[in-house]
Design a protein around this nucleic acid. Structure first.
Lengths: 226, 226
DNA sequence: CGACCATTTGATATGGATCAAGCGATGTGG
DNA sequence: CCACATCGCTTGATCCATATCAAATGGTCG
């Protein structure tokens, strides 16, 4: 059932997680020259579920959502990707999600075969690819745990996830609309909105603008996240 | 409560070359001789979340659940593993779930370093490991989609998942109790039980015994699964 | 300014959780 | 072999969190 046509190797040498800055830097710098930066407009499709995963992608600016559509029209968002994030790396041959730009975005598009060829020669690159897969698996597992919680816990988890990208910042600027958040968390927009309002009333967050969130009590959020 | 003392050793030098489709038969036969078969009693712990993933495991008889415990005592089951299934293969260094025997089980326990060393020399093994990871990722993604559906859809999805192991059989023999199913689907036992009763009333399934389920209308289940 | 879209808020409905009781199978000791 | 305790499962009654339906508000851009 599974046909794999590309040859690549993924040496697992010593340390995979917790790579030093220098190590991942080489991957980052090398990959940055491996493809063109392509602009996508808001809501523009980057790839579709089931397509061959011929490329992988790195967000230069803007942001991206991956998602699946169910037959009845429901949409499940698998993840959000912000500048610096790499997405579209599949273990199998095909994309298991679709991907769209959330806002106008610049995306680095890199031939998978080129990366794989590089990984075959450079153990560091290979290791980095392997640990990207590990992170993706981790994200999925965390998401599963999130989805069985209450609405408040889900929203808190989402906010902390967004905040973790700038751990020190107290301000979150969301690129995505409420519907995106709702489809990520398995809730409705109304519930997301109401829950955010509740968090604002309890002075856990502030909402100066609908897509700008200030964390006023990160501890309270973390507690909800348990 | 079963305590399993495991000596940790430092792992893994070698490579995991990927690619080129082949049958997993050689992998299966080779792996079967790489470790001892260990008996675990019902509810016995096989490994705990956060432990070093020093081994991987193959179910010889019985069955296994993997799970996470939340701080408030809720339990999320990540997956069920039946005879022939391999589990405990992690991309990172540590187990992200705990694992327990659901019933008295015989488990083949294989040193991860040994498998990795083998994979370094044998591209077929490496490819098989890679595609096991792909399947695991796929399972997680499918689970995410399942968890945002209605109770009836989740139960239908669960039954089809169990049935897919013997695609032609019309009879499912469940090793796990209702609580396990509930914690897998993010529902309560009562809801699982009621939903099964509903499916029986609508003649979609039959329940001769509580853990034996006959599929009387697989099409109806599949439709729910969409 | 006016049209349009995103977001919030309100009122009501409902699916699943919770609380509670009953039932059936399995095992144990008398 | 039966009485009884235990455990897993089902069923019933009620409650509550979230969905649904509906309307108002606000923000953006022509």
């Amino acid at each position: 059932m599974q046909t794999q046509t590309i040859t690549y190797r993924t040496p697992v040498t010593g340390s995979v997680p917790g790579m030093s800055q220098a190590e991942s830097c080489s991957f980052e710098t090398q990959i940055d020259m491996m493809g063109p930066a392509i602009p996508f407009t808001r809501n523009g499709e980057i790839y579709g579920e089931g397509e061959r995963a011929e490329y992988l992608y790195k967000v230069l600016s803007g942001s991206v959502r991956t998602y699946k559509l169910l037959t009845d029209g429901r949409r499940q968002i698998g993840g959000f990707y912000l500048p610096g994030d790499i997405f579209g790396l599949e273990v199998g041959d095909d994309h298991t999600f679709s991907a769209e730009a959330i806002v106008d975005s610049k995306i680095l598009v890199i031939k998978r075969s080129a990366v794989m060829a590089l990984a075959a020669r450079d153990a560091e690159i290979a290791s980095e690819l392997w640990s990207m897969t590990a992170r993706e698996l981790q994200r999925m597992q965390d998401h599963i745990v999130l989805l069985v919680k209450t609405a408040r816990e889900r929203v808190a988890g989402f906010l902390l996830e967004m905040a973790s990208l700038q751990p020190l910042a107290t301000e979150i600027n969301l690129p995505m609309c409420r519907q995106d958040i709702a489809d990520y968390l398995g809730l409705t927009i109304e519930t997301v909105s109401r829950t955010l309002s509740q968090l604002e009333n309890s002075e856990t967050i502030a909402l100066p603008k609908s897509r700008q969130i200030l964390l006023r009590n990160r501890g309270a959020l973390s507690q909800l996240n348990c």
